[in-house]
């Protein structure tokens, strides 16, 4: 009955297939939309609201890049990806960039041939336990049952940690964070381990968050950042410097509140170069002079994005910690705009 749908649609699809692409920047401009891979739902990082508008910490990076390239933070097609589909989606060109809390590792950079353009969140794997367990350090967890997401780097980190410390554990494999939440609350495991940001978000959703505590040990380095394909360095530069623009803006005190005023010209030459009133940085990237201004206006500077999506005033309540500016003792550091 519906055979012809398939045939006709296939024919249309084949015909509308376009030839090989010139450069990602040109493609994006021609399309008028940035195609950005995000998580299909991760608290604070990427989530659609009731109207289907995406928001979150990773989503803000997409919006900043779209604003820098196209002048419109809304000109983004968000492509939900899972942990399994994300890399193929990027490698095959289905998406222009991936901003999906992806850990920057050697093999992903070198073997999978992706360029990590920077780090927008320094995470690390932590442990959550019920307070009544009376544990104050992860090294006291000998013989514990641990809820762990399968097929992730956290699983390997956990094995490494327990082996290094010569203690034993019993893994309870689970598939998603939501499942972990249920299992942990039902007492199926003593400990839940995943990235510390995820633990904080999970704990915030509990009925009695005060009954649970995060252990001080962070057992792995998880630098999360946006990435692009190897082979198009111009495009990589654009994504890298859009992220850096947000970071530099915070360092220089440029916020979404005062950017209009500062955009008219200031005493500080670096701010002027950043906002395009001095020099020709935008031209070098192949973008308009106010590219960085647009990127910052999309959602504010790095600090504002952080506070709005995952900061201490949100239910997730993450402290800046490692993600403070280098001037405040954190690791967030952008090369100079010169």
């Amino acid at each position: 009955m519906n055979k012809s749908v398939i045939l006709s649609a296939a024919a249309v699809a084949c015909l509308s297939a376009v030839g090989a692409s010139a450069g990602t920047l040109d493609d994006v401009k021609a399309r008028g939309k940035l195609s950005c891979g995000v998580a299909s739902g991760l608290v604070g990082f990427a989530t659609p609201d009731a109207n289907g508008e995406w928001g979150g910490f990773d989503v803000s990076v997409c919006r900043a890049v779209a604003a820098a390239v196209l002048g419109d933070p809304k000109a983004v097609d968000f492509v939900p990806t899972t942990g399994k589909t994300r890399f193929t989606a990027l490698a095959s060109g289905e998406i222009d960039m991936l901003a999906r809390n992806t850990t920057w590792t050697f093999s992903r950079d070198v073997d999978l041939k992706f360029t990590f353009v920077g780090v927008n969140y320094y995470d690390g794997q932590g442990f959550m336990v019920p307070k009544e367990l009376g544990v104050s350090s992860a090294k006291e967890l000998d013989g514990a049952t641990v809820c762990i997401q399968t097929g992730t780097t956290t699983e390997l980190n956990l094995a490494d940690f327990f082996r290094t410390n010569g203690i034993s554990y019993e893994p309870v494999p689970i598939e998603t964070n939501a499942e972990a939440q249920q299992q942990y609350l039902a007492g199926a495991c003593d400990v839940y381990t995943t990235d510390a940001s995820g633990l904080a978000a999970t704990r915030a959703a509990f009925e009695n968050p005060g009954d649970h505590t995060l252990l001080p040990e962070i057992i792995s380095k998880e630098p999360l950042g946006p990435l692009v394909r190897h082979g198009d360095n111009e495009w990589g530069d654009i994504v890298r410097w859009s992220l850096n623009a947000l970071i530099t803006a915070e360092e220089l005190g440029v916020t979404s509140a005062n950017i209009a005023e500062m955009g008219a010209g200031t005493e500080n030459p670096e701010i002027n170069r950043l906002l395009g009133t001095e020099g020709n940085l935008g031209e070098m990237l192949g973008l308009s002079a106010d590219w960085a201004k647009n990127a910052i206006m999309a959602g504010g500077n790095y600090g504002e994005v952080f506070e709005k999506n995952i900061g201490e005033n949100t239910p997730i309540g993450l402290a800046r910690g490692l993600n403070a500016q280098w001037t405040d003792g954190g690791l967030i550091y952008s090369p100079p705009f010169r």
Partner: peptide, 23 residues
């Protein structure tokens, strides 16, 4: 939902990722 299409199950995960409905 496993390949990233947001059908009802995929959407339920996305909705759970909203801070208002997490949990």
């Amino acid at each position: 939902s496993i390949i990233g299409l947001l059908d009802v199950i995929g959407l339920s995960q996305a909705i759970r990722a909203d801070t208002a409905w997490n949990g």
